[in-house]
Write a protein that binds this DNA or RNA. Structure first.
Length: 299
RNA sequence: GGCCACGUAGAAAAGUGGUAAUUCGCUCCUCUGCAAAAGGAGCAUGCGCGAGUUCGAUUCUCGCCGUGGCCU
């Protein structure tokens, strides 16, 4: 007999659909605890711009993987996976329901599918050197090191090629992907049509500006976060940084940012679409969702 | 009423007597450690409308319509 895998609930979907609130509601109903799967909410001090849940909104439900690292440092999937696995084990040991909620599809998939990444840490120096080379030159190098891996790479995507070279240099070649399934998972997806989503994004953005988002970001810079880093952090951090540097007007910031957030939501959907296990709902269909969760927990 | 300029994809905008750059947008897509990141593909048989010149016009000529400006 196979040992039964622990049950995990995953709440996914694009930005601005209300994942956090739903997660809390379900947690209250089924004795759950929440693991955030958001690549930006892990950073301390990035609250308004990331739409991080507030303590009062948590309604007493424990939340994990928020504020785990300084924004100067770089977080990544592997770190996420390690921490999340540990957290889930802990929650399960206390016989509570782990709820993974967030919009970073890559993180969620890595965790749930149990994808094992090659044990090669990021090599900043090497990356900096390789980044100066052309995509063509990089492709030549990876083809020499590992032709199999090279074939699967996008020949124009330097970021990907560089990582492949990084691994190949350390290990001789890039190992095949391994996956070890650790959980039995129910995927609940929250989504909206693009027009309504756009509206929500608009309203939410104005609200964020209203409650001090610009101040938050200018403080981050004052405390030593470079413009470059803020740019890399993306979306609100990128565009507010541009505004603070007076490279764009406030009006431009709002319109461009809104557009970018909408694009981001699209990219998120693009990612989630591939996962056919996701059961999709509209925000507000909480009863239907609760029923689905109940069914999942029963068998 | 007269004169002048302009009229190119959803938007902005280049261009040529030989069959339409570019940017944004839109659609679709990729993903083995930065994923709010990085990257790829497609989207005007058509250049205001009609006629003429020409082997051939979006590009030249004429007329019409529209827009903007100037003049009386």
């Amino acid at each position: 007999m196979k040992k039964k895998l622990p049950k995990v609930l995953a709440i996914v979907g694009p930005t601005a659909t209300g994942k956090s609130d739903l997660a809390v509601e379900v947690a209250l109903l089924y004795d759950g605890e929440i693991i955030s799967a958001d690549s930006r909410q892990v950073y301390k001090g990035m609250d308004i711009g990331t739409g991080k849940i507030t303590v009062s909104e948590m309604k007493g439900i424990p939340h994990y993987l928020l504020d785990v690292i300084e924004p100067k440092k770089v977080f990544d999937v592997e770190l996420f996976k390690t921490k999340a696995e540990k957290t889930i084990a802990d929650i399960v040991s206390r016989e509570k329901l782990p709820i993974v909620a967030g919009g970073t599809g890559f993180y969620i998939d890595a965790l749930i599918s149990g994808e094992i990444f090659p044990d090669v840490p990021a090599n900043k120096k090497l990356r900096a050197i390789l980044a100066k080379k052309s995509a063509e030159a990089l492709m030549k190098e990876i083809t020499k090191l590992d032709p199999r891996r090279a074939k699967a790479l996008d020949p124009f995507n330097k970021v990907r090629i560089i990582r492949a070279i990084e691994i190949a240099r350390a290990l001789g070649s890039v190992p095949m992907v391994k996956r070890v399934k650790r959980y039995e998972t129910l995927f609940i997806g929250l989504t909206l049509d693009s027009v309504k989503l756009r509206e929500k994004i608009h309203i939410r953005l104005l609200k964020r500006i209203d409650v001090g988002m610009i101040k938050e970001i200018s403080n981050l810079h004052k405390k030593g976060l470079s413009w470059k880093r803020l740019h890399d952090l993306g979306l609100e951090y990128r565009y507010v940084a541009l505004y603070l540097q007076k490279k764009i007007t406030k009006e431009e910031m709002v319109t461009q940012l809104e557009q970018e957030i909408a694009h981001y939501a699209k990219r998120q959907m693009q990612w989630f679409k591939r996962n056919t296990d996701i059961k999709w709902f509209a925000p507000g269909e909480n009863k239907k969702i609760a029923r689905e969760v109940k069914k999942f927990l029963k068998n």
